[in-house]
Write a protein that binds this DNA or RNA. Structure first.
Length: 905
RNA sequence: GGGCGGUUAGCUCAGCGGUAGAGCGUCUCGUUUACACCGAGAGGGCCGGCGGUUCGAAUCCGUCACCGCCCACCA
């Protein structure tokens, strides 16, 4: 045990560099932590676990600002809880991201002139794996740059064998429970990617289009017609009815009659249906059940045929209407229709509009701006298409998930997001889980020669089932489709822990404590995890869902490639260090708010990192080193008791802020304490007292608290300083206990004393500046009407006051005030600054008058309040009392200012 | 159409029933031996408008205006 607080460590001889250089220090520290296993969870420990499951980034991804935000928040929480002694697991991994990844690899193949269809499924999937092995690690490397303390050896990928087994188990189970089934209905079809996508993957974009008014002749009534309005004339080939509102007087008599479908010649019924809105268009609407969600419902109600007239690439296909083509003079021409076969939907539209115009059936065309659904990946308009897909009965799964949030078993932060969650969950639609892709979990369903389904966890198992059915081996073919990526990410909270195996991790780290994500992902992912987690684990997947905002640029614009306003977090890390970026993010992350972030913000908070570094350099230069034998509860000096007490408050505030997910308040509490309290006041007060061991010990102790408080947000610089000062072994701050308040002897007295000194210095500084006292001039101050204790207190602090307020001496005022003095009212005393040489009496009079008026205004306001009988009667006693005190203070101040004014004449 | 959020100092935001705050920016001053990525001081606000509740409203309620999201709507 060393006899004094100075430890002799390996770095003892090296002083801290004059400037902090993050780019050199950060990678070294990260490697050190990782090598030392500092991020590892310990399933064997007795500590209470704390789990955060990373929202697995797409394997194709690279770190963007949104990642920087969410992962900074997560790492801050994980590091804080780890320091609190929790067995912290931050589960890493990435998502196979079906569509995104397949698109990336397809693009690469296209550069080599290869189409995936030529390659074949097996080869293609092999190429994707190859790509994943070579290029899929980008984001995990970048997460290290950010300082993310993930438990890397536990890294998982949604297509791992283990996770794939979980997917198959879940699918088979839900199928057997009747919660997964096949159905033929309309889906959102992306003609570019040629797959079904879910409602959530559809984005409505405003399009300036047209509204075409088309005359449909009434059958058997020459010259009569009914006009329909449509934004999609090309779909008329698939029309099977015209609908009007049953109460619409204009058309009521037509219900039950027929129209001739122009171009096609087919006869369509006019049906009465409340879907038709008399206010919209012409009040008569064409019904195309196979290409419109509403029309599909109308078609069902009226048992209409549902011919598809567009294929999977959204090209015209006539197979299902070929039989119904019929020539009608001046109205329909089968040859024309046949000429449309194979045309793209846009070309078909042009051709059809031209033909209608030629036939005089186009009544008018109006410009029309409307929302058109686009695939958010492919970027082309979605085509509602009638196909057979796999569906999950989300309604059944949603019920317990809703209940879990209602009863508070899972709590959203901020709470208002629960409404968003409820609104969607209570009206949830069947979840289309099949995708016509090659990259993903292939659906574990095999078909027999007669089309019979065998859903099983493996082909062998399916074969066994088939054998039982057919009495012999059968040639089985597996379903070609893969599952929606969110189907597997929904299992993430338990599949990563080894489910369906009963691993020790599964029992220990499920449910997780916090899920951190953006609101845009509540439906996609949070909802699915809730549903699947509860269904398969019998408990919610996490206790809290912390929803943060979006990262925007400085002007509040959403970052996008097209706007060219993307900020690359890695550039910021290179330039300012990860700590600066992370602290900036924490400081700006208020509840339910988007984060407006620009380089200037990060540059600004880098100054804080530098400030901390310099404060540490000051300590180093003054032999301020940690002393394990120091006991803060035995502190004797007012100065040390004062800073220890302030540190207690900082610890309390920072901890409370983190508990409440208030990262902004956490950052602010640390910032204020470090910069304002520690650097600006304590260090300055300590300078003349550094000869005292207790002052040095306290300084070191408080610096240690600062390093610990800041570590979750600024892991690198704090660890570096911690190690260099020998607070602990190398790489040890990450696992050093989080500070807790300690009892400080007579803290209130210390606070009162130092607050007075701070006030004295501030007031004198203020007057000196205002009176234009040259900074180099030292002036004496005299205390008028000061109690002996006050005078003694002032003299005790003469050293720092001399330096900070530029004061040469402090005495009681004996006799008359020197001519040409400035005066400051400070509690019961008046501070007199003899400034004969420099003072301008007129401006001093103005200044004192202004001060007096300010106090008088204050007094008037309070007096008014206290004169109000209702206030005195109804307001709480302590509020009334407080106002009486404030009034007394204000009145005393007025008196002292009046006296001061009288003295200068 | 339904819902949610926002409107507070030049900018970004905190405060959400009892004395209007912070950071940045601005202005003035300062090379005091940790730090000029610094220090000191100053200026700057009918807390979006209008009603209401209350002894008391930036804060609660109603209403309007504007901004931004989400869901529904694809005639």
């Amino acid at each position: 045990m060393a006899s004094c607080g100075i430890r002799v460590g390996p770095q003892e001889s090296e002083m801290l560099d004059k400037t902090y250089n993050p780019s050199e220090i950060e990678p070294r520290l990260y490697e050190g932590w990782e090598r030392a296993g500092a991020f590892a969870a310990d399933p064997g420990s007795n500590a209470r676990p704390f789990t955060i499951m990373i929202p697995p980034p797409n394997v194709t991804g690279s770190l963007h600002m949104g990642h920087a935000l969410t992962f900074t928040v997560q790492d801050t929480l994980i590091r804080w809880r780890r320091m609190q002694g929790r067995d912290a697991l931050w589960q890493p991994g990435s998502d196979h991201a079906g569509i995104a990844t397949q698109m990336v690899v397809e693009r690469l193949l296209a550069e080599q002139g290869v189409d995936r269809r030529d390659l074949g499924r097996a080869k293609f999937v092999e190429r994707v794996w190859q790509w994943k092995d070579e290029s899929g690690g980008t984001i995990t490397r970048q997460l290290r740059r950010l300082g993310a303390s993930l438990d890397w050896p536990r890294e998982r990928f949604t297509m791992d064998e283990g996770l794939s087994a979980a997917v198959r188990r879940v699918f088979v189970t839900l199928y057997r429970q009747g919660l997964i089934y096949r159905d033929k209905r309309l889906v959102n079809w992306d003609p570019k990617l040629q797959t079904a996508i879910s409602d959530l993957e559809v984005e409505n974009l405003e399009v300036k289009g047209s509204l075409w008014h088309i005359r449909y002749p009434i059958a058997g009534a020459p010259g009569r017609s009914i006009t329909v309005a449509t934004t999609r004339p090309e779909t008329m080939l698939g029309d099977t009815a015209v609908a009007v509102h049953p109460e619409d007087a204009r058309y009521r008599d037509l219900i039950g009659r027929q129209v001739v479908l122009p171009l096609v010649g087919r006869l369509l019924p006019i049906v009465g249906d409340e879907y038709s809105d008399p206010e919209k268009g012409t009040g008569a609407v064409k019904i195309t059940p196979a290409h419109d969600f509403n029309d599909f419902e109308v078609g069902r109600r009226h048992a209409l045929p549902m011919p598809s007239i567009l294929d999977r690439q959204a090209r015209v296909t006539l197979a299902e209407i070929a039989d119904s083509l019929a020539p009608v003079e001046g109205v329909a021409d089968p040859d024309f229709v046949r000429s449309l076969e194979g045309l793209d939907r846009a070309d078909a539209r042009r051709a059809i509009v031209a033909e209608l115009e030629r036939l005089g059936l186009l009544e008018k065309v109006e410009p029309h701006t409307h929302q058109v659904p686009h695939g958010d990946r492919g970027g082309v308009p979605i085509e509602p298409l009638l196909t057979v897909q796999w569906y999950c009965n989300a309604e059944v799964l949603a019920k317990p998930a809703i209940e879990a949030v209602e009863t508070g078993r899972t709590v959203f932060v901020p709470k208002q997001w629960e409404n968003t969650f409820f609104a969607w969950m209570r009206d949830i639609q069947p979840w289309c889980i099949s995708r016509q892709l090659w990259w993903g979990h292939q659906i574990p369903c095999w078909y027999g020669p007669d089309g019979r389904e065998f859903v099983a966890e493996s082909e062998a198992e399916a074969q066994a089932a088939a054998r039982a059915q057919y009495g012999s081996d059968a040639a089985l073919t597996q379903d070609e489709d893969v599952l929606d990526t969110w189907f597997s990410s929904g299992l993430w909270p338990f599949s990563t822990l080894g489910w369906p195996e009963q691993t020790p991790e599964l029992g220990r780290y499920y449910p997780g404590d916090v899920l951190v994500t953006g609101f845009d992902i509540i439906f996609f992912w949070v909802a699915r995890m809730m549903m699947q987690g509860i269904h398969f684990m019998g408990d919610v997947p996490f206790r809290h869902v912390y929803i943060h905002g979006l990262v925007r640029d400085e002007r509040g614009q959403k970052m996008s490639k097209s706007k060219g306003n993307i900020i690359d977090p890695l550039e910021l890390i290179d330039k300012y260090g990860a700590d600066a970026l992370r602290f900036t993010i924490c400081a700006l992350t208020g509840p339910g708010r988007d984060v407006k972030l620009g380089a200037a913000r990060v540059e600004n908070y880098r100054r804080f990192v530098t400030k901390l570094w310099n404060a540490a350099r000051f300590c180093e230069m003054n032999d301020i080193r940690p002393d394990p034998s120091f006991d803060p509860s035995q502190a004797t000096l007012p100065l040390t008791r004062w800073i220890l007490d302030a540190a207690n408050r900082a610890v309390t505030e920072a901890t409370a802020a983190l508990e409440a997910f208030r990262f902004d308040e956490y950052a602010a509490a640390c910032y204020r304490f470090t910069w304002d309290t520690f650097c600006d006041w304590f260090v300055e007060f300590a300078k003349p007292a550094l000869g005292e061991a207790e002052v040095r010990q306290t300084a070191a102790h408080v610096l240690g608290i600062i390093l610990r408080l800041l570590h979750p947000a600024m892991p690198f610089v704090t660890e570096e300083l911690w190690d260099r000062f020998g607070y602990g072994a190398e790489y040890s701050l990450i696992r050093t206990p989080w500070p807790e308040p300690v009892a400080v002897p007579d803290a209130a007295a210390a606070r009162e004393e130092l607050d007075w000194v701070v006030k004295l210095i501030s007031e004198v500084r203020s007057v000196r500046t205002e009176m234009n006292v040259p900074p180099g001039t030292l002036t004496p101050i005299l205390l008028r009407d000061a109690a002996p204790a006050t005078l003694a207190r002032g003299q005790r602090w003469m050293e720092p006051v001399r330096r900070l307020a530029r004061i040469s001496s402090l005495e009681a005022l004996a006799g008359d005030m020197p001519k040409g003095s400035a005066q400051v009212v400070l509690d019961e005393a008046t501070v007199v600054l003899p400034l004969a040489e420099v003072i301008d009496l007129a401006s001093e009079r103005v200044r004192l008058t202004r001060e007096r008026d300010k106090a008088a205004g204050e007094a008037r306001k309070i007096a008014q309040k206290l004169d109000n009988a209702d206030f005195v009667r109804r307001a709480p006693e302590e509020v009334v009392e407080e106002n009486r005190d404030r009034l007394a203070t204000a009145q005393a101040d007025i008196a002292r200012f009046e006296a001061a004014l009288a003295r200068i004449g």
